[in-house]
Design a protein around this nucleic acid. Structure first.
Length: 866
RNA sequence: GGGCGGUUAGCUCAGUGGUAGAGCACCGGCUUUACACGCCGGCUGUCGGGGGUUCGAUACCCUCACCGCCCACCA
């Protein structure tokens, strides 16, 4: 705030308005580089934000507007405090959602066996049936469509007023991201932290890909308990004698052909005699052992369970720990694979009967096989009673439509469980806002069930950067992979050729073949601090921003994005990726439901911004505190807009007569500034602690009483009714207050504050220094608590008089010839002149009265009602 | 089953060991030279239930209920 800037004559509009401010100021900020990151600054002068890259395959919704506003408030506050704010935007255009959108949008499907067609152009309308295109062509379409989406997103973010440095934008499918992701992977592979394994894996049968533990969710589905008899080998072969069979209960009878054992708890007296013996599976006549394992729950079902390869995760645990054989029947597409009974691994006491039964199930989906096998079980007498319907939680891929299966396949993993202690330590080192969100992280780390499966059998993603040699017989030698040099990265092994081979050797005996998989999208987005910060490409930048200050994100992805990012930083840098994380809540509709398209309660953000103004919408968003689910409430947006409007008009009032100026001597002026200094401290400490809601609420409350009480009380004096010195005191105080309040509101209402600032200041309010209490009280030579008390007493007295006038239905302007006020508001005497002018009181006294005693001037006799 | 958060005015939400708050809504009033996208005033509560600590609890402790979310090996 230099003297030269304040000496400008204010340029005031006759009728200030909010319309058009978004476009006007975005153009200026863009042209002037207002939010450009100053990369000359060293780490301690930088505030770095690891912005969540929105998924561009969808559309931005009100929840994005909500949480990104919170981050922007913090960014603007830190910038005004003098930090160089590193605030890039990222686009998450990598992964399944994009694939799905591209398939539908263009009517194409990826066929990795096709060669690249350089002249390919997508059809104008979605093709039916879908066109098959090569993987490189498919990826081109993904890039083309996401680029369009990104332009729309950027326009919305700018309109909302995010103070992002748009020159630093990155994409999770971009070259930088691919290079970071592939480099990190190869380094982890060398250290033995990444590894490949053929093992039972959670599998989505529609997407035909492996998925990770973190991407699971439970859904309640109807099902049924089926009570099924397994015959004892020494018992009657078909009849169900009293001790001739064992009864299990299962919700998945279609997996009986995959049964490899029964299991009960080691202490379960009912089944102890059976341990070490075997039973015969119904329909298929397979002899399977009865085993003991502590995970078996005596209280569940009949207390003894069948182990199948594989019905659920527990089956996998039992299978591994009890060293059972594999008898897998579910194929990657979710159907039962044909089996020849009587061959090795499929031995049966009656192979012909087994085959006859199984032929009725082969190639059916598990869902369709179930009723079929139930009929057969009934016919054979192995089903005891009727199935008992239940609803039970079933594991789904969070983006999937059908229950997950477990399929054995070759996958890449990152070790996680080996680092549990380190990860817990990082979690407690991290500062969480709100603090209780840390429990979700700890909960997750403590519950890690296995390492992180990072490979996906998909097309649009970062490829695994390696190849495998082919043996003379054409089989793949997985044990001797071929690696590129780090300097070559990023590569695509489906088109690039490993050193020492020619392209013609791809797929040929003694040749090579690329790893077909792509990485889980989280395996790349867990490197956003490294990607955005220039880890490999720009080490100088990286040193200035990493570890970053803030990770803002929503609570539903603590187990994925937050956890994964902490893991990757621990593995690569032995540090936290950032010192703080701010967790935002969801936007819910007034019925407490999450806003969703299917409920028809979705509103497009741009329409809201246009209706209520960006400042109005930001006000609503900023009222939702960290971690708090917040109701979608257009009413609050209207309140925000009203606040912005009030800021325009109050500012106009303060600036319309800014002369004369002089010493701030009047008690009300001094009291107002004294209180303002207290407010500055409160707002500052709120924002420092990421409690932007408190800062806004306090500032807003001060501002309204500043308008309603203070400005009304000093209006007459300010207009010169009591001479030049009194007017000068008011004017000077108002200018200090206005400058301070505009800066306090600037992070929340960037458009209206910038507009008003431009009336009388040079430069951007968003580059102005954050106010300090000492700066405010400097204008009155130090804090003046006595004056603050006088202002409080005067405001209270004003309220008393207003109440009486209102009760008596007197016009506000009506003159009071004589007023007796209660002694409780007596402290106002030093401001009596201002007070009497504002209330039109001619003669003022104080006495022990409960209610103010007011005598009104007789109305003028000519008054008439017409 | 484990964990976390919530329960305050009709609605949306602040809040503090010492007389219950704001905005919206509602009702009434005011052409007042910054603002009718305004101003002034009013109405509304067993602060979820029950126990405990305390001179005093909406706040602290225990417990229960309900709502929401996270996690879990759910045969």
């Amino acid at each position: 705030m230099s003297d030269s800037s304040e000496s400008q004559r204010p340029r005031l509009p006759d009728k200030p308005a909010l319309e058009g401010l978004e476009t006007k100021w975005n153009d200026r900020w863009s042209a002037q580089g207002t939010y450009r990151f100053d990369r000359a600054r060293t780490r301690d002068g930088v505030y770095a934000i690891d912005t969540p890259p929105p998924t561009v395959s969808g559309s931005l919704h009100i929840g994005h507007v909500f949480s990104f506003t919170h981050t922007d408030v913090v960014a603007r506050f830190q910038r005004m405090r003098g930090k160089a704010v590193f605030y890039p935007m990222g686009w998450d255009d990598n992964g399944l959602p994009t694939e799905r959108r591209v398939q539908n949008y263009y009517g194409v499907r990826c066929d990795p066996s096709l060669p690249y067609d350089a002249s390919f152009q997508p059809p104008d309308k979605p093709a039916k049936p879908p066109l098959s295109v090569s993987r490189p062509n498919f990826i081109e379409l993904c890039n083309r469509l996401t680029h369009e989406d990104e332009k729309v997103f950027e326009a919305l973010w700018r309109y909302l007023g995010l103070s992002v440095d748009w020159s630093m934008t990155y994409a999770t499918i971009g070259k930088r991201a691919q290079r970071a992701s592939q480099t990190s992977f190869l380094r982890l592979l060398k250290r033995g932290i990444a590894y490949q394994l053929e093992a039972p894996t959670l599998w989505d049968i529609d997407f035909r890909t492996a998925v990770a533990q973190a991407e699971l969710e439970d859904r309640e589905l109807p099902g049924a308990y089926h009570r099924i008899a397994f015959a004892r080998p020494d018992g009657p072969s078909t009849a169900l004698g009293a001790s001739g069979h064992v009864e299990i209960e299962t919700t998945r009878p279609e997996l009986i052909p995959a049964c490899v054992a029964l299991v009960a708890h080691p202490d379960d007296e009912r089944y102890k005699p059976l341990f070490g013996t075997s039973v015969i599976t119904p329909l298929f006549g397979v002899e399977v052992p009865v085993k003991a394992h502590s995970l078996a729950d005596p209280a569940k079902g009949s207390g003894i369970a069948m182990i199948c390869t594989f019905g659920d995760i527990t089956d996998v645990t039992w299978w591994r720990e009890l060293s059972l054989p594999v008898r897998a029947i579910v194929q990657p597409n979710g159907t039962l694979r044909p089996v020849t009974w009587g061959t090795p691994g499929w031995e049966s006491r009656d192979a012909a009967r087994a085959q006859a039964h199984y032929d009725q199930l082969a190639n059916l989906s598990t869902a369709r096989a179930q009723p079929r096998i139930v009929e057969m079980l009934k016919e054979s007498g192995s089903l005891i009673g009727e199935p008992r319907p239940i609803t039970h939680p079933v594991k789904f891929y969070e983006k999937g439509d059908r229950p997950l299966e477990i399929v054995t396949s070759r996958q890449w993993f990152l070790k996680t469980t080996d680092f549990r202690e380190e990860l817990l330590a990082r979690g407690s080192e991290l500062k969480w806002h709100p603090d209780y969100m840390r429990y979700r992280y700890e909960n997750w780390v403590n519950g890690l069930a296995g390492d992180w499966c990072i490979s996906r059998q998909r097309f649009f993603g970062v490829p695994f950067p390696l190849w495998y040699p082919l043996r003379a017989d054409g089989s793949i030698d997985y044990d001797r992979p071929l690696f590129p040099d780090e300097a070559q990265l990023p590569i695509d092994p489906s088109t690039d050729t490993p050193a020492g081979y020619s392209p013609a050797q791809r797929g040929a005996p003694n040749g090579f073949i690329g790893d077909p998989d792509v990485m889980d999208t989280w395996a790349t987005s867990s490197l956003t601090p490294q990607i955005a910060g220039g880890w490999l490409d720009d080490p100088d930048l990286f040193a200035r921003v990493f570890p970053m200050d803030l990770r803002p994100q929503a609570h539903d992805i603590i187990r994925t994005w937050l956890f994964d990012t902490v893991l990757r930083a621990e593995l690569a840098h032995q540090s936290l990726p950032w010192s703080h994380t701010a967790i935002s809540g969801f936007v819910v509709d007034p019925d407490r439901k999450k806003m969703s398209k299917s409920k028809g309660n979705v509103v497009t953000p741009m329409a809201l911004l246009e209706e209520h103004g960006s400042d109005g919408v930001r006000y609503w968003a900023a009222r939702g505190g960290p971690g708090t689910d917040t109701t979608f409430d257009p009413g609050q947006m209207k309140v925000g807009r009203r606040l912005a409007m009030k800021l325009l008009n109050a500012s106009r009032f303060a600036l319309m007569a800014d002369e004369p100026r002089g010493a701030i001597t009047e008690p009300l002026d001094r009291g107002m500034l004294s209180s303002l200094a207290t407010l500055v401290d409160e707002a500052t400490s709120g924002l420092e602690e990421y409690d932007y809601t408190r800062a806004l609420e306090r500032t807003e409350r001060f501002f309204w009483s500043f308008c309603d009480d203070y400005l009304e009380l000093v209006k007459a004096r300010r207009y010169g009714d009591f001479g030049m010195a009194g007017a000068a005191s008011a004017n000077s105080a108002m200018l200090v207050a206005l400058s301070t309040l505009l800066r306090l509101f600037a992070p929340f209402l960037p458009f209206v504050t910038e507009e008003v600032w431009s009336w009388w200041q040079s430069g951007s309010v968003h580059q102005a220094a954050w106010p300090t209490a000492s700066e405010v009280v400097q204008a009155i030579g130090g804090a003046d608590p006595d004056a603050a008390a006088i202002l409080a007493a005067t405001s209270n007295a004003l309220a008393e008089v207003r109440r009486v006038k209102s009760t008596l239905k007197k016009p506000t302007k009506s003159v009071i010839t004589k007023a007796v006020l209660s002694k409780q508001v007596q402290g106002l005497e030093p401001a009596a002149r201002d007070f009497q002018a504002a209330t039109h009181i001619r003669e003022l006294r104080f006495d022990a009265v409960e209610e103010p005693q007011l005598e009104f001037e007789e109305p003028a006799p000519q008054e008439s009602r017409g």
